[in-house]
């Protein structure tokens, strides 16, 4: 979708500039949950909090006071960010990441027969009557990515293995 060009105001005089910037356009504090509007903040229940902590593999709060603090913070955060829900974004494609979204880039990134010709060349056809494709199992040289001390940074290990001590029921 092409950008819509705005009408822009040329500022010719320095005095005009003073005037223009004299009046603020909005207040960022409006995003904060004011003390009085605290009741409008989204309510998070203790259950929800504990669920989120579990999902994040973070420990449960040590006492009621710590838990209340967590709930308050989360509530304030949600109030701060929640205002975007009022914005009408119908028909807008989400922007997931900054990357080349042009048609030319898509063509360049397309995986074609040519892209994979080396891999396909590593296959052979076996069989005289019942022809089947088989990938030739050659030795793969991956030294450039495999040659480093994989276990060298681990505090605990057992021989060539990493170790986890878990008494939890297994799946």
């Amino acid at each position: 979708m092409s950008a819509i060009r705005q009408k822009m105001l040329r500022v010719r005089n320095p005095a005009d500039l003073d005037q223009l910037l004299a009046k603020p356009t909005w207040s960022v504090e409006s995003l904060l949950p004011s003390k009085s509007a605290a009741s409008e903040s989204p309510k998070i229940s203790t259950q929800q909090l504990h669920h989120l902590l579990r999902l994040s593999a973070l420990p449960a709060p040590e006492n009621a006071e710590a838990e209340q603090k967590m709930l308050d913070t989360l509530s304030a955060q949600l109030h701060f960010v929640g205002e975007i829900q009022q914005v009408d974004t119908s028909g807008v494609t989400p922007l997931r990441a900054i990357r080349d979204e042009t048609a030319a880039a898509e063509v360049e990134q397309t995986i074609t027969l040519d892209t994979l010709k080396d891999a396909l060349a590593k296959e052979q056809v076996v069989g005289k009557h019942y022809k089947r494709i088989q990938r030739k199992i050659d030795h793969v040289d991956a030294k450039d990515v495999e040659d480093w001390d994989v276990l060298g940074s681990a505090e605990r290990k057992a021989g060539r293995f990493f170790v986890v001590e878990s008494e939890m029921p297994q799946e």
Binding site: A158, R160, F161, V163, V164, E165, E167
Partner: peptide, 9 residues
């Protein structure tokens, strides 16, 4: 057993 898991990546 009882609770050790050896991991191979």
């Amino acid at each position: 057993p009882p609770s050790t898991h050896l991991l191979d990546f």
